[in-house]
Computed example of a mutant assay.
Amino acid sequence: MKWFTLSLALVAPSQAALRFGCSTISIQRLDPLVEPGRIPSAHVHQIVGGNAFAPDMPTGSKNNISTTATCTSCFFSEDFSNYWTAVLYFKARNGTYKRVPLVANSALEGSTDGMTIYYTQKDFNSNGNAKITAFPPGFRMTIGSPTVNNKAGVVNGLRYTCLQNINTRGAETAELPAKACPAGIMAIHHFPACWDGKNLDSPDHQSHMYSTTKVGTFVEAGPCPSSHPVRVPQLAYETIWDTTKFNDKSQWPADGSQPFVWSMGDKTGYATHGDYVFGWKGDALQKAMDSSCMFQACGNGKPLLSQSKDAINKCKVKSTVTEDTEGWLTALPGQM
C-alpha cells in the first residue's frame, strides 16, 4: 500500500500518524542500551535523533534525554529520541567489505540519509480513533536479536523490500533479497505497540512490550492483551540502503549468492534488529497522538514544531570510537 495515496478526509475523533525523516548523527560501534558503557560495542550501528547519544545514557523516568540534548537530526524539532540499527556492508568476491551508503526516503523534508520514522495507530488508510498513550520519559525497547540465525526465530515485524523504485511497497521478505535490487534494499522494523504500563525497560529490553503484529506491513493486528494493556504508538523504522552501487554481479560471490552482510556478520538478514530510547520534549508526542494530523502535516506548530533542512543535517555526535567503518575493509569492525 502506498502512503501517498492516503486520504486526509478522516472521520473525527481521530488520532495522529507521524512519518518523518531523521538524518544520521553517527555511524560507530556504540550501543548504550544493550551494551551500556562499553567502548567499543560489538558491532557498528547507524544512529539518528538527538545529540545526547553517548556510550552510557542515564536510565529512569527522571532522565529524559530531551533535557540534555541540544539538537536533533529529526524533522520534528521536539523529538530528541535516539533510533539505531546495525549497518549493512557489501562483501566483495575478494573477501573485502565496504559499507553500503544510506539514502533518504521519498517525499520527506530535510533529511539526506538516515531513517524514516513512524508513530502510527492503525494503517495507511486510516489513523484510527483509539486512545494512544505516548511513551513516558525514560522508556526504552529493542526489537529483534543480533544472534538469530534462522527464519523460525524472526520477529513478524522485521522485513525487507527489494526496491524497484523509491516508492516500492509490499513483497516483503524475512531474509535479505537474493537478487540485485534496482533501487536498493529497504530494511523495515515494526516495534511492538502494547506496553505493560509499568516498566520503562526490562532485562531483555523486550518483555515489557507485546506485539500483535501478524505481518510486516502497517496493519492493525488485534487488541492488546491484559498482560500488556496499554496501546502505545506503533513505532517503525524504514532504512534504505543504496545497494545499487554494488549490483555488478562480477563482484558477487562466485556461487551467485547475495553479497550483503550486517555489521555483526549476519548474511541471512534474520539477525536485523533495532533500538529505541524515548526523548520527546515535554508532552509533545502525546499532543500529536491526541490530534488528527497526518505525517509531516503535523509540523509547523500543528501541533508539533519542525525545523529546517540545514538544522536537520547539521546535528551530529562526535565519534567516541576511532576506527574505519567506511573504507574497503579486510574484516568487519569488531568481527575479526
Rank of each mutant, 00 (worst) to 15 (best):
M264L: 08
K249I: 15
M289V: 03
D310A: 14
V148K: 08
L10P: 02
L102C: 11
S73D: 03
W262D: 02
P13S: 12
A183E: 09
N165R: 04
N199P: 05
S126H: 07
Y276Q: 00
K249Y: 10
Q296G: 08
V48L: 07
D31I: 03
P55I: 02
T24R: 02
S126N: 12
T68S: 13
G274Y: 13
A69G: 08
L305W: 03
A180F: 03
K62L: 15
G256M: 00
G197T: 04
E220F: 13
N156V: 10
T322N: 07
G138M: 03
V48C: 10
L6Q: 14
I27F: 04
T212C: 13
G49L: 06
D123L: 02
D31C: 14
E109W: 13
A107H: 12
P182T: 01
P182A: 02
H228Q: 00
K214C: 09
L88D: 01
A16F: 07
G21E: 05
K198T: 13
Q307M: 02
V154E: 06
V44T: 14
C181K: 11
T120K: 13
H189P: 11
A311Y: 00
D196N: 15
H43P: 03
V317Q: 14
G274P: 08
S23T: 08
H208P: 05
T67P: 10
G301H: 08
N156K: 15
I166K: 14
A271G: 11
W3P: 14
T272D: 13
Q206Y: 08
Y119W: 07
C71Q: 10
C162D: 07
F135K: 04
R231D: 11
R29P: 04
S106T: 13
G37F: 00
D248W: 07
A236D: 09
S111A: 11
K151H: 12
S126C: 05
A17T: 11
E323D: 07
G299T: 09
T243D: 02
V317I: 12
T85L: 04
K314D: 12
T239A: 15
A12Y: 10
G49M: 02
N300R: 12
S226I: 06
G95I: 00
H189C: 03
F139A: 03
K281H: 08
L332G: 03
V48N: 09
S306V: 04
G334A: 01
G110P: 05
V261F: 00
F246T: 08
Y210D: 04
I143P: 00
A254D: 11
T244L: 08
V100K: 01
P192L: 04
S263L: 07
F53N: 02
L329P: 01
T5K: 15
A54N: 15
A221M: 11
Q206L: 14
V48A: 11
F246Q: 02
A236V: 05
L163W: 03
L30Y: 04
R19K: 12
P137Y: 00
L332V: 02
G128Q: 08
F76Y: 07
L18I: 01
T5H: 13
E109A: 15
C315F: 08
W262S: 00
A171H: 10
V100L: 06
I240W: 06
L33A: 12
A12W: 08
N165A: 05
G216A: 07
T133A: 04
Y83D: 13
S291L: 05
C194Q: 01
Q164M: 05
E220N: 15
N199I: 11
Y89Q: 01
M186I: 00
I132F: 05
S227G: 15
